[in-house]
Design a protein around this nucleic acid. Structure first.
Lengths: 221, 221
DNA sequence: CGAATAGTGTCTGTAAGACAGTATCTG
DNA sequence: CAGATACTGTCTTACAGACACTATTCG
Protein backbone atom coordinates (compact mmCIF):
# COMPACT_ATOMS: atom_id res chain seq x y z
CA UNK A 1 0.00 0.00 0.00
CA UNK A 2 2.89 2.35 0.59
CA UNK A 3 5.42 1.41 -2.05
CA UNK A 4 6.40 4.85 -3.25
CA UNK A 5 9.54 5.93 -5.07
CA UNK A 6 11.08 8.99 -3.38
CA UNK A 7 13.37 11.23 -5.37
CA UNK A 8 14.60 14.81 -5.52
CA UNK A 9 15.10 16.85 -8.68
CA UNK A 10 16.83 20.18 -9.10
CA UNK A 11 15.90 22.89 -11.59
CA UNK A 12 19.21 24.69 -12.05
CA UNK A 13 18.51 28.04 -13.68
CA UNK A 14 20.81 30.67 -15.08
CA UNK A 15 20.53 33.72 -17.30
CA UNK A 16 22.35 34.04 -20.61
CA UNK A 17 22.07 36.86 -23.11
CA UNK A 18 19.28 34.84 -24.69
CA UNK A 19 17.24 34.64 -21.51
CA UNK A 20 16.61 32.04 -18.85
CA UNK A 21 18.21 28.66 -19.36
CA UNK A 22 17.93 25.41 -17.48
CA UNK A 23 20.72 22.88 -16.98
CA UNK A 24 19.99 19.35 -18.21
CA UNK A 25 22.12 16.21 -17.84
CA UNK A 26 22.01 12.93 -19.69
CA UNK A 27 20.54 10.27 -17.42
CA UNK A 28 22.99 7.62 -16.26
CA UNK A 29 20.39 4.97 -15.48
CA UNK A 30 17.11 3.60 -16.77
CA UNK A 31 14.45 4.67 -17.33
CA UNK A 32 15.29 7.14 -20.10
CA UNK A 33 19.01 6.30 -19.84
CA UNK A 34 21.03 8.71 -21.96
CA UNK A 35 18.21 11.21 -22.33
CA UNK A 36 18.71 14.80 -21.15
CA UNK A 37 16.72 15.50 -17.99
CA UNK A 38 16.77 17.46 -14.75
CA UNK A 39 19.54 16.43 -12.36
CA UNK A 40 17.92 14.22 -9.76
CA UNK A 41 18.21 11.06 -7.76
CA UNK A 42 16.85 8.89 -5.03
CA UNK A 43 16.69 10.12 -1.48
CA UNK A 44 19.35 8.35 0.57
CA UNK A 45 17.60 7.77 3.87
CA UNK A 46 20.84 6.61 5.45
CA UNK A 47 22.88 9.72 4.67
CA UNK A 48 20.56 12.63 3.77
CA UNK A 49 19.32 14.65 6.71
CA UNK A 50 16.30 15.83 4.74
CA UNK A 51 15.14 16.46 1.18
CA UNK A 52 17.01 19.75 0.99
CA UNK A 53 20.20 17.89 1.92
CA UNK A 54 19.46 15.36 -0.78
CA UNK A 55 19.00 18.14 -3.34
CA UNK A 56 22.27 19.74 -2.27
CA UNK A 57 24.04 16.39 -2.55
CA UNK A 58 22.59 15.67 -5.99
CA UNK A 59 23.64 19.10 -7.23
CA UNK A 60 27.11 18.74 -5.76
CA UNK A 61 27.64 15.22 -7.13
CA UNK A 62 26.32 15.94 -10.61
CA UNK A 63 27.58 19.45 -11.26
CA UNK A 64 30.10 20.26 -8.54
CA UNK A 65 28.06 23.33 -7.63
CA UNK A 66 28.13 24.00 -3.91
CA UNK A 67 25.50 25.80 -1.86
CA UNK A 68 23.96 28.25 -4.29
CA UNK A 69 20.56 29.81 -3.71
CA UNK A 70 18.43 26.68 -3.31
CA UNK A 71 14.75 26.68 -2.49
CA UNK A 72 11.98 24.14 -2.49
CA UNK A 73 9.71 24.54 -5.50
CA UNK A 74 6.97 21.95 -5.02
CA UNK A 75 6.44 18.23 -4.95
CA UNK A 76 5.29 16.33 -7.99
CA UNK A 77 3.72 12.97 -7.45
CA UNK A 78 1.42 10.31 -8.78
CA UNK A 79 1.06 6.98 -10.46
CA UNK A 80 1.47 8.28 -13.99
CA UNK A 81 4.67 10.31 -13.99
CA UNK A 82 7.28 7.53 -13.76
CA UNK A 83 7.17 4.11 -15.47
CA UNK A 84 8.69 2.51 -12.36
CA UNK A 85 5.53 3.17 -10.39
CA UNK A 86 3.92 5.60 -7.97
CA UNK A 87 6.54 8.27 -7.37
CA UNK A 88 7.21 11.44 -5.45
CA UNK A 89 9.71 14.02 -6.59
CA UNK A 90 10.50 16.82 -4.19
CA UNK A 91 11.78 19.53 -6.51
CA UNK A 92 14.17 22.32 -5.60
CA UNK A 93 15.26 25.18 -7.78
CA UNK A 94 18.70 26.76 -7.75
CA UNK A 95 19.89 30.04 -9.20
CA UNK A 96 23.47 30.56 -10.33
CA UNK A 97 25.44 32.88 -12.55
CA UNK A 98 26.27 31.79 -16.09
CA UNK A 99 29.93 31.76 -15.04
CA UNK A 100 29.19 29.05 -12.46
CA UNK A 101 27.64 26.88 -15.17
CA UNK A 102 30.40 27.25 -17.72
CA UNK A 103 32.90 26.10 -15.07
CA UNK A 104 31.19 22.72 -14.85
CA UNK A 105 33.33 19.98 -16.34
CA UNK A 106 30.74 17.65 -17.73
CA UNK A 107 30.50 17.03 -21.42
CA UNK A 108 26.88 15.93 -21.28
CA UNK A 109 25.58 19.08 -19.67
CA UNK A 110 23.15 21.01 -21.88
CA UNK A 111 21.74 24.45 -21.35
CA UNK A 112 18.26 24.71 -22.79
CA UNK A 113 16.29 27.92 -23.16
CA UNK A 114 13.23 27.68 -20.98
CA UNK A 115 11.17 29.12 -23.81
CA UNK A 116 12.21 26.39 -26.23
CA UNK A 117 12.44 23.24 -24.15
CA UNK A 118 13.22 19.96 -25.89
CA UNK A 119 10.97 16.99 -25.12
CA UNK A 120 11.89 15.75 -21.66
CA UNK A 121 11.16 12.57 -19.73
CA UNK A 122 8.74 12.28 -16.81
CA UNK A 123 6.91 15.55 -16.10
CA UNK A 124 10.12 17.56 -16.30
CA UNK A 125 8.68 20.05 -18.77
CA UNK A 126 5.89 20.97 -16.42
CA UNK A 127 8.32 21.07 -13.48
CA UNK A 128 10.52 23.55 -15.33
CA UNK A 129 7.53 25.65 -16.32
CA UNK A 130 6.49 25.80 -12.68
CA UNK A 131 9.99 26.84 -11.64
CA UNK A 132 10.19 29.58 -14.27
CA UNK A 133 6.79 30.88 -13.37
CA UNK A 134 7.75 30.93 -9.67
CA UNK A 135 10.98 32.77 -10.41
CA UNK A 136 9.27 35.34 -12.63
CA UNK A 137 6.54 35.87 -10.10
CA UNK A 138 8.94 36.30 -7.19
CA UNK A 139 11.09 38.65 -9.26
CA UNK A 140 8.28 41.18 -9.17
CA UNK A 141 8.85 41.94 -5.53
CA UNK A 142 12.03 40.34 -4.21
CA UNK A 143 15.80 40.18 -4.35
CA UNK A 144 15.74 36.75 -6.00
CA UNK A 145 17.19 37.89 -9.37
CA UNK A 146 20.47 38.95 -7.71
CA UNK A 147 21.42 35.30 -7.46
CA UNK A 148 21.57 35.03 -11.25
CA UNK A 149 24.56 37.38 -11.27
CA UNK A 150 28.09 36.87 -9.99
CA UNK A 151 28.96 38.16 -6.57
CA UNK A 152 29.68 41.69 -7.72
CA UNK A 153 27.54 43.45 -10.28
CA UNK A 154 26.48 46.91 -11.38
CA UNK A 155 23.03 48.41 -11.10
CA UNK A 156 22.56 48.55 -14.89
CA UNK A 157 23.40 44.83 -15.05
CA UNK A 158 20.92 44.06 -12.29
CA UNK A 159 18.26 46.14 -13.96
CA UNK A 160 18.74 44.19 -17.20
CA UNK A 161 18.28 40.95 -15.24
CA UNK A 162 15.00 42.18 -13.78
CA UNK A 163 13.90 43.36 -17.21
CA UNK A 164 14.65 40.01 -18.84
CA UNK A 165 12.77 38.13 -16.12
CA UNK A 166 9.78 40.43 -16.09
CA UNK A 167 9.76 40.87 -19.85
CA UNK A 168 9.33 44.63 -19.69
CA UNK A 169 11.57 47.63 -19.40
CA UNK A 170 11.79 49.35 -16.03
CA UNK A 171 12.15 53.06 -15.44
CA UNK A 172 15.75 53.67 -14.42
CA UNK A 173 14.99 56.23 -11.74
CA UNK A 174 12.25 54.05 -10.21
CA UNK A 175 14.50 51.02 -10.28
CA UNK A 176 17.27 52.78 -8.40
CA UNK A 177 14.84 54.30 -5.92
CA UNK A 178 13.51 50.78 -5.27
CA UNK A 179 17.01 49.38 -4.78
CA UNK A 180 17.79 52.11 -2.25
CA UNK A 181 14.51 51.45 -0.47
CA UNK A 182 15.10 47.67 -0.35
CA UNK A 183 18.48 48.31 1.26
CA UNK A 184 19.90 44.95 0.30
CA UNK A 185 22.98 46.05 -1.68
CA UNK A 186 26.27 47.44 -0.52
CA UNK A 187 28.80 49.12 -2.81
CA UNK A 188 32.00 47.17 -3.31
CA UNK A 189 34.14 50.15 -2.39
CA UNK A 190 36.65 51.14 -4.99
CA UNK A 191 35.41 48.48 -7.38
CA UNK A 192 34.12 49.74 -10.70
CA UNK A 193 33.12 48.07 -13.89
CA UNK A 194 35.36 49.84 -16.42
CA UNK A 195 34.29 47.96 -19.53
CA UNK A 196 33.33 50.16 -22.44
CA UNK A 197 34.03 53.67 -23.54
CA UNK A 198 31.99 55.42 -20.93
CA UNK A 199 31.74 56.32 -17.29
CA UNK A 200 32.51 53.25 -15.13
CA UNK A 201 29.71 51.79 -13.06
CA UNK A 202 29.87 51.19 -9.33
CA UNK A 203 29.99 47.52 -8.41
CA UNK A 204 27.63 46.31 -5.72
CA UNK A 205 27.11 43.07 -3.86
CA UNK A 206 24.24 41.60 -1.89
CA UNK A 207 24.55 42.36 1.80
CA UNK A 208 25.55 39.12 3.57
CA UNK A 209 22.22 38.88 5.39
CA UNK A 210 20.44 38.33 2.07
CA UNK A 211 22.60 35.60 0.61
CA UNK A 212 20.30 32.79 1.70
CA UNK A 213 17.21 34.79 2.37
CA UNK A 214 14.95 36.98 0.31
CA UNK A 215 14.35 40.66 0.57
CA UNK A 216 10.76 41.57 -0.14
CA UNK A 217 9.55 44.94 -1.25
CA UNK A 218 6.13 46.39 -0.53
CA UNK A 219 5.18 47.18 -4.11
CA UNK A 220 6.54 45.55 -7.23
CA UNK A 221 8.86 46.96 -9.87
CA UNK B 1 18.56 2.97 0.82
CA UNK B 2 15.11 4.13 -0.17
CA UNK B 3 12.93 3.14 2.73
CA UNK B 4 10.97 6.32 3.15
CA UNK B 5 7.58 6.81 4.80
CA UNK B 6 5.27 8.79 2.49
CA UNK B 7 2.35 10.67 3.99
CA UNK B 8 0.12 13.66 3.35
CA UNK B 9 -1.06 16.12 5.97
CA UNK B 10 -3.72 18.80 5.66
CA UNK B 11 -3.72 22.16 7.42
CA UNK B 12 -7.42 22.96 7.57
CA UNK B 13 -7.82 26.64 8.36
CA UNK B 14 -10.83 28.74 9.18
CA UNK B 15 -11.54 32.15 10.62
CA UNK B 16 -13.49 32.69 13.82
CA UNK B 17 -14.15 35.98 15.58
CA UNK B 18 -10.94 35.30 17.51
CA UNK B 19 -8.84 34.97 14.38
CA UNK B 20 -7.37 32.12 12.39
CA UNK B 21 -7.91 28.62 13.72
CA UNK B 22 -6.61 25.25 12.63
CA UNK B 23 -8.51 21.97 12.84
CA UNK B 24 -6.82 19.21 14.83
CA UNK B 25 -7.92 15.59 15.26
CA UNK B 26 -6.91 12.99 17.82
CA UNK B 27 -4.64 10.44 16.17
CA UNK B 28 -6.16 7.00 15.74
CA UNK B 29 -2.87 5.14 15.49
CA UNK B 30 0.61 5.10 16.97
CA UNK B 31 2.84 7.02 17.16
CA UNK B 32 1.20 9.71 19.31
CA UNK B 33 -2.08 7.78 19.38
CA UNK B 34 -4.80 9.91 20.95
CA UNK B 35 -2.86 13.14 20.64
CA UNK B 36 -4.36 16.03 18.70
CA UNK B 37 -2.55 16.54 15.39
CA UNK B 38 -3.07 17.60 11.79
CA UNK B 39 -5.32 15.28 9.79
CA UNK B 40 -3.04 13.10 7.72
CA UNK B 41 -2.30 9.62 6.53
CA UNK B 42 -0.27 7.39 4.32
CA UNK B 43 -0.36 7.75 0.57
CA UNK B 44 -2.30 4.85 -0.92
CA UNK B 45 -0.34 4.05 -4.05
CA UNK B 46 -3.02 1.66 -5.20
CA UNK B 47 -5.91 4.13 -5.08
CA UNK B 48 -4.59 7.71 -4.95
CA UNK B 49 -3.89 9.28 -8.34
CA UNK B 50 -1.44 11.71 -6.82
CA UNK B 51 -0.65 13.46 -3.54
CA UNK B 52 -3.41 15.99 -4.05
CA UNK B 53 -5.87 13.13 -4.40
CA UNK B 54 -4.51 11.61 -1.22
CA UNK B 55 -4.99 14.91 0.61
CA UNK B 56 -8.53 15.20 -0.67
CA UNK B 57 -9.25 11.62 0.44
CA UNK B 58 -7.79 12.19 3.90
CA UNK B 59 -9.84 15.35 4.35
CA UNK B 60 -13.01 13.64 3.14
CA UNK B 61 -12.51 10.55 5.31
CA UNK B 62 -11.58 12.40 8.46
CA UNK B 63 -13.84 15.44 8.34
CA UNK B 64 -16.39 14.82 5.59
CA UNK B 65 -15.33 18.06 3.90
CA UNK B 66 -15.45 17.79 0.14
CA UNK B 67 -13.40 19.75 -2.37
CA UNK B 68 -12.73 23.04 -0.61
CA UNK B 69 -9.95 25.35 -1.67
CA UNK B 70 -6.97 23.00 -1.42
CA UNK B 71 -3.41 23.90 -2.35
CA UNK B 72 -0.01 22.36 -1.84
CA UNK B 73 1.92 24.11 0.91
CA UNK B 74 5.32 22.42 0.94
CA UNK B 75 6.92 19.10 1.71
CA UNK B 76 8.46 18.40 5.07
CA UNK B 77 10.98 15.60 5.26
CA UNK B 78 13.91 14.14 7.09
CA UNK B 79 15.18 11.53 9.48
CA UNK B 80 14.29 13.43 12.63
CA UNK B 81 10.63 14.38 12.28
CA UNK B 82 8.98 10.97 12.79
CA UNK B 83 10.02 8.24 15.24
CA UNK B 84 9.14 5.60 12.63
CA UNK B 85 12.06 6.67 10.45
CA UNK B 86 12.94 8.84 7.48
CA UNK B 87 9.69 10.38 6.37
CA UNK B 88 8.17 12.68 3.80
CA UNK B 89 4.98 14.61 4.40
CA UNK B 90 3.48 16.41 1.45
CA UNK B 91 1.39 19.08 3.11
CA UNK B 92 -1.69 20.76 1.66
CA UNK B 93 -3.65 23.58 3.17
CA UNK B 94 -7.40 24.04 2.89
CA UNK B 95 -9.56 27.06 3.58
CA UNK B 96 -13.18 26.74 4.68
CA UNK B 97 -15.82 28.83 6.37
CA UNK B 98 -16.42 28.40 10.08
CA UNK B 99 -19.88 27.04 9.21
CA UNK B 100 -18.27 24.15 7.31
CA UNK B 101 -16.25 23.21 10.39
CA UNK B 102 -19.08 23.35 12.87
CA UNK B 103 -21.03 20.92 10.66
CA UNK B 104 -18.39 18.24 11.18
CA UNK B 105 -19.68 15.42 13.34
CA UNK B 106 -16.57 14.33 15.13
CA UNK B 107 -16.29 14.68 18.86
CA UNK B 108 -12.48 14.69 18.85
CA UNK B 109 -12.13 17.64 16.51
CA UNK B 110 -10.47 20.65 18.12
CA UNK B 111 -10.11 24.14 16.75
CA UNK B 112 -6.90 25.74 17.97
CA UNK B 113 -6.01 29.39 17.53
CA UNK B 114 -2.92 29.57 15.35
CA UNK B 115 -1.49 32.16 17.70
CA UNK B 116 -1.77 29.89 20.72
CA UNK B 117 -0.98 26.42 19.43
CA UNK B 118 -0.83 23.56 21.91
CA UNK B 119 2.24 21.29 21.78
CA UNK B 120 1.85 19.06 18.72
CA UNK B 121 3.56 15.87 17.56
CA UNK B 122 6.06 15.66 14.71
CA UNK B 123 6.87 19.05 13.19
CA UNK B 124 3.20 20.02 13.03
CA UNK B 125 3.76 23.33 14.81
CA UNK B 126 6.23 24.46 12.21
CA UNK B 127 3.99 23.15 9.41
CA UNK B 128 1.08 25.24 10.70
CA UNK B 129 3.29 28.29 11.08
CA UNK B 130 4.37 27.89 7.48
CA UNK B 131 0.75 27.58 6.33
CA UNK B 132 -0.33 30.67 8.27
CA UNK B 133 2.56 32.67 6.98
CA UNK B 134 1.77 31.57 3.41
CA UNK B 135 -1.88 32.51 3.81
CA UNK B 136 -1.09 35.91 5.32
CA UNK B 137 1.46 36.62 2.64
CA UNK B 138 -0.86 35.62 -0.21
CA UNK B 139 -3.67 37.64 1.32
CA UNK B 140 -1.73 40.78 0.53
CA UNK B 141 -2.37 40.46 -3.17
CA UNK B 142 -4.87 37.72 -3.94
CA UNK B 143 -8.42 36.49 -3.64
CA UNK B 144 -7.42 33.73 -1.22
CA UNK B 145 -9.29 35.15 1.82
CA UNK B 146 -12.66 34.77 0.05
CA UNK B 147 -12.49 31.04 0.71
CA UNK B 148 -12.69 31.65 4.46
CA UNK B 149 -16.25 32.94 4.04
CA UNK B 150 -19.41 31.13 3.03
CA UNK B 151 -20.47 31.25 -0.57
CA UNK B 152 -22.24 34.59 -0.25
CA UNK B 153 -20.81 37.45 1.73
CA UNK B 154 -20.86 41.23 1.93
CA UNK B 155 -17.99 43.58 1.17
CA UNK B 156 -17.74 44.74 4.79
CA UNK B 157 -17.45 41.09 5.89
CA UNK B 158 -14.76 40.44 3.30
CA UNK B 159 -12.89 43.56 4.34
CA UNK B 160 -12.89 42.38 7.95
CA UNK B 161 -11.42 39.05 6.83
CA UNK B 162 -8.60 40.81 5.00
CA UNK B 163 -8.03 43.04 8.01
CA UNK B 164 -7.83 40.11 10.41
CA UNK B 165 -5.39 38.27 8.17
CA UNK B 166 -3.21 41.27 7.49
CA UNK B 167 -3.47 42.58 11.04
CA UNK B 168 -4.15 46.14 9.97
CA UNK B 169 -7.14 48.19 9.03
CA UNK B 170 -7.73 48.91 5.37
CA UNK B 171 -9.13 52.08 3.90
CA UNK B 172 -12.70 51.36 2.88
CA UNK B 173 -12.60 53.30 -0.38
CA UNK B 174 -9.29 51.74 -1.41
CA UNK B 175 -10.57 48.28 -0.54
CA UNK B 176 -13.66 48.64 -2.68
CA UNK B 177 -11.69 50.17 -5.56
CA UNK B 178 -9.37 47.15 -5.38
CA UNK B 179 -12.28 44.72 -5.39
CA UNK B 180 -13.72 46.40 -8.47
CA UNK B 181 -10.33 46.31 -10.17
CA UNK B 182 -9.80 42.61 -9.34
CA UNK B 183 -13.15 41.85 -10.95
CA UNK B 184 -13.57 38.54 -9.17
CA UNK B 185 -16.90 39.15 -7.39
CA UNK B 186 -20.42 39.19 -8.74
CA UNK B 187 -23.41 40.56 -6.85
CA UNK B 188 -25.92 37.92 -5.79
CA UNK B 189 -28.79 39.86 -7.30
CA UNK B 190 -31.56 40.64 -4.93
CA UNK B 191 -29.70 39.10 -2.00
CA UNK B 192 -28.95 41.42 0.87
CA UNK B 193 -27.62 40.94 4.35
CA UNK B 194 -30.36 42.52 6.43
CA UNK B 195 -28.92 41.87 9.89
CA UNK B 196 -28.75 44.90 12.15
CA UNK B 197 -30.45 48.24 12.40
CA UNK B 198 -28.89 49.80 9.36
CA UNK B 199 -28.82 49.80 5.60
CA UNK B 200 -28.64 46.21 4.27
CA UNK B 201 -25.44 45.18 2.51
CA UNK B 202 -25.29 43.69 -0.97
CA UNK B 203 -24.28 40.03 -0.97
CA UNK B 204 -21.57 38.97 -3.39
CA UNK B 205 -20.03 35.68 -4.43
CA UNK B 206 -16.79 34.70 -6.09
CA UNK B 207 -17.18 34.45 -9.86
CA UNK B 208 -17.13 30.74 -10.76
CA UNK B 209 -13.80 31.07 -12.60
CA UNK B 210 -12.08 31.88 -9.31
CA UNK B 211 -13.39 29.07 -7.16
CA UNK B 212 -10.34 26.89 -7.64
CA UNK B 213 -7.94 29.49 -8.85
CA UNK B 214 -6.50 32.66 -7.44
CA UNK B 215 -7.01 36.19 -8.60
CA UNK B 216 -3.85 38.25 -8.23
CA UNK B 217 -3.71 41.97 -8.02
CA UNK B 218 -0.83 44.15 -9.19
CA UNK B 219 -0.30 46.01 -5.92
CA UNK B 220 -1.26 44.86 -2.46
CA UNK B 221 -3.94 46.15 -0.14
C1' DC C 1 -36.16 60.69 14.25
C1' DG C 2 -31.70 58.85 16.14
C1' DA C 3 -28.39 55.29 15.84
C1' DA C 4 -25.92 52.38 13.13
C1' DT C 5 -23.65 50.59 9.22
C1' DA C 6 -23.56 50.50 3.84
C1' DG C 7 -21.96 52.71 0.10
C1' DT C 8 -20.00 56.92 -2.81
C1' DG C 9 -17.84 61.52 -4.35
C1' DT C 10 -13.91 64.25 -3.93
C1' DC C 11 -9.58 66.17 -2.23
C1' DT C 12 -4.87 65.58 -1.09
C1' DG C 13 -0.39 63.75 -0.45
C1' DT C 14 2.80 60.33 -1.92
C1' DA C 15 5.15 57.67 -4.98
C1' DA C 16 6.08 56.04 -9.74
C1' DG C 17 7.43 57.26 -14.40
C1' DA C 18 9.12 60.72 -18.04
C1' DC C 19 12.56 63.76 -19.31
C1' DA C 20 16.50 65.98 -19.44
C1' DG C 21 20.60 67.22 -17.49
C1' DT C 22 25.47 66.23 -15.62
C1' DA C 23 29.52 62.89 -14.96
C1' DT C 24 33.25 60.16 -16.64
C1' DC C 25 35.20 56.97 -19.32
C1' DT C 26 37.54 55.41 -24.47
C1' DG C 27 39.44 56.32 -28.83
C1' DC D 1 36.12 66.27 -28.42
C1' DA D 2 32.59 62.84 -29.94
C1' DG D 3 30.28 58.97 -28.47
C1' DA D 4 28.70 56.08 -25.07
C1' DT D 5 26.74 54.79 -20.84
C1' DA D 6 26.47 55.92 -15.59
C1' DC D 7 24.11 58.53 -12.56
C1' DT D 8 20.94 62.41 -10.74
C1' DG D 9 17.55 66.42 -10.31
C1' DT D 10 12.98 67.71 -11.23
C1' DC D 11 8.39 67.80 -13.25
C1' DT D 12 4.17 65.35 -14.17
C1' DT D 13 0.85 62.01 -13.52
C1' DA D 14 -1.59 58.31 -11.29
C1' DC D 15 -3.07 56.10 -7.40
C1' DA D 16 -3.81 55.21 -2.35
C1' DG D 17 -5.74 57.06 1.78
C1' DA D 18 -8.52 60.68 4.39
C1' DC D 19 -12.74 62.83 4.89
C1' DA D 20 -17.17 63.78 4.47
C1' DC D 21 -21.42 63.04 2.56
C1' DT D 22 -25.66 60.28 1.21
C1' DA D 23 -28.52 55.85 1.67
C1' DT D 24 -31.29 52.69 4.15
C1' DT D 25 -32.48 49.98 7.73
C1' DC D 26 -34.40 49.24 12.98
C1' DG D 27 -36.45 50.58 17.11
Amino acid sequence: MNQVICTVDVVLLTLSTDGLEVALLRREHAPFKGVAALPGGYIHADTDADARGAARRVLQDKTGIEAPYLEQLATFSGAARDPRGWSVSIVYYALVSLAMITQIERSDLVLASVDRLPPLPFDHVSIIETAVSRLRSKSQYSSLPCHLLSEEFTLPQLQRVYEMLLGESINKVSFRRKMTEMDMLEPADGHFDTAGAHRPAQLYRLKPAFHKQLRLVERGF
